[in-house]
């Protein structure tokens, strides 16, 4: 515990800033109903009301309170992103480590399949699936999980491969250890640092990806509050010089910047340690 505190306090300013921002977002997401002045879907006034003491950030195109939707948006978007990233990590990470530990034809087949998926730009792929299946949540989640899992597979396989060639893994195999043990005890503990950093990067990617889809009107569907669609709904205001649409967009940007700062620091730390040993 003490140790962890030491590491955290040694972080550069940008990483500390990042951690504070992430923490704030989490608090807002968890306690959204307590913090938000109005309900998520409550229609309160006229459309596009200006900023006032009653509606601090004005109202949206249907007359709902912007600030409240912004707060609920944190919950919806973050929740969805986390779900997708975790699922993608389970799927891609486990398959990647299996491919690296087993090698041979299992690795060949899995890697070739992933190569094909990686050869399609993910936004294009997602749009294709959405046009076929319509904008339904389960399909959206499944699509992004699969697409993202291919990227996780790549990195998990590559890092696990570096560990799998180590003599201690060979020793475990020679001892007669089962695949599960080799992966859990020999490989996984040695790739947690890069995987954790990758989790941060993937999180950002998924977050931006969902926001982009929502912005295009193809992601999270109304009336659920979501930052991407809030930008879309209020985008006409920008032509009057009103900065309101930039607020949800900025909320997205701020979080990804924060996560990236933390990830950058983590990567720097793990590579720095490697240089010394």
């Amino acid at each position: 515990m003490n140790n962890m505190f030491k590491t955290l306090s040694s972080a550069p300013l940008s990483a500390k800033f990042g951690m504070i921002v992430i923490f704030t977002y989490l608090v807002v997401a968890v306690f959204a109903p307590l913090i938000a002045p109005y309900g998520e879907r409550e229609i309160l006034g006229r459309a596009y009301e200006l900023w006032s003491s009653e509606y601090p950030l004005g109202t949206d195109n249907l007359g709902r309170d912007m600030l409240s939707r912004l707060i609920y948006g944190a919950r919806n978007t973050l929740g969805l992103t986390l779900t997708i990233t975790v699922l993608a990590f389970l799927l891609g990470g486990i398959l990647g480590m299996i491919a690296a530990a087993l090698g041979g034809w299992v690795d060949q087949i899995l890697s070739r399949i992933v190569d094909v998926f990686m050869a399609i730009p993910s936004l294009i792929f997602a749009l294709l699936i959405l046009s076929i299946f319509g904008t339904s949540m389960p399909y959206l989640i499944a699509t992004i999980v699969v697409l993202d899992a291919t990227r996780v597979f790549r990195i998990a396989r590559a890092t696990a491969m570096n560990v799998a060639v180590m003599d201690y893994v060979e020793v475990a195999r020679l001892r007669g250890e089962k695949l599960g043990w080799v992966i859990r005890k020999e490989i996984l503990p040695n790739i947690t640092a890069p995987l954790l950093a990758e989790f941060g990067l993937r999180f950002c990617f998924v977050f931006l990806f969902i926001s982009a889809l929502s912005f295009l009107g193809l992601g999270i569907q109304p009336p659920t509050a979501d930052w991407g669609s809030m930008v879309r709904d209020s985008s006409t205001l920008i032509s009057y010089g009103d900065v309101t649409p930039l607020i949800p967009a900025g909320a997205i940007a701020l979080l990804t910047v924060a996560v990236n700062f933390v990830v950058d620091w983590m990567l720097h730390r793990s590579s720095g340690l490697k240089d010394v040993s």
Binding site: A212, V231, I238, L246, A249, I252, A253, V257, N260
Partner: peptide
């Protein structure tokens, strides 16, 4: 880290 539409707007 910025979404494209943020930069664009």
């Amino acid at each position: 880290s910025f979404p494209e539409f943020f930069i664009a707007y």
